[in-house]
Amino acid sequence: MAGMNEDGQWIVLMGLLAAVGLFFLALVINQSAIVGQTTAEGVIEFPKNDIRDLREAVFDYTDKFRTVPDSDETKKNVQKDIIAISLERKNAVVDFSVGGPQEISGRNLHPIEIRYNNGVTEYHETVYY
């Protein structure tokens, strides 16, 4: 190999560097395509408005039926409405119960237990209303 010219080595080395640089840039683009996918799916998936709406429906129900005994057919029917429609139209298993009034900080409040489960998100709350 004596007498061979080595002038080309730098060119080859620089070419290699450029190739590695391009490879990294391509990697960045490749990864950026999926940025935010999980976040966006998580936000879409989370039933924020469904849960808020259910809470309000339960509060309305409490307003209307708080003095009515549990055995009342009308009261049962409204609760059945909410449970059945939630399952059918929102794919959510829902249950709620309103307890008798308790004195909380000097006010008579009803403990309301709300349970919500749509298979992905599970929500359980006891609120005094």
């Binding site: 950026s32 395509a33 940025v35 935010g36 966006a40 879409i44």
Partner: peptide, 11 residues
Amino acid sequence: TTSVYTAGDTH
């Protein structure tokens, strides 16, 4: 690289 329309944007 600086402006990529990601899957997150579509939602």
